[in-house]
């Protein structure tokens, strides 16, 4: 049997799951609710987000979240019956994650 390249995708999935669980709720609450409600001054947050290091971290969060989602969607669709097209499905999912990451890089950087 040939060695699997799955460890690479699974590692991204694991890292993405961790970062998504820890940071996305915070980001959503902060940018979606706390800032509009006036709990945090927008300009303060804007200054923070203009820091290159913070932008890089946000890109990292987006990158891992995309690959986490891609892996999950890929395996869910496979389990739901798309076994005969497993390889194109994997390519499509990870390509979409890559596209999302590039899009995030264009927006953030």
């Amino acid at each position: 049997m040939r060695p699997s390249n799955e460890p690479f995708w699974w590692a991204m999935f694991g890292a993405g799951g961790m970062i998504t669980a820890l940071l996305l709720p915070v980001l959503i609450i902060l940018t979606g609710f706390v800032v509009p409600a006036g709990g945090v001054d927008f300009n303060q947050l804007d200054t923070l987000f203009n820091n290159p290091l913070v932008r890089l971290i946000i890109l990292g969060v987006a990158f891992l979240s995309f690959f986490h989602a891609a892996h999950r969607i890929r395996h869910t669709l496979k389990d739901l019956g798309l076994r005969s097209v497993a390889t194109p499905l994997a390519v499509l999912c990870y390509a979409a994650a890559l596209a999302g990451t590039i899009w995030a890089a264009l927006v953030v950087l």
Binding site: M1, R2, P3, S4, E6, T76, D79
Partner: peptide
Amino acid sequence: QQLIWADEGIWDCTFV
């Protein structure tokens, strides 16, 4: 390892 680390080993499992 060769067997259980292959796609047909642990990696087919989707942790249902």
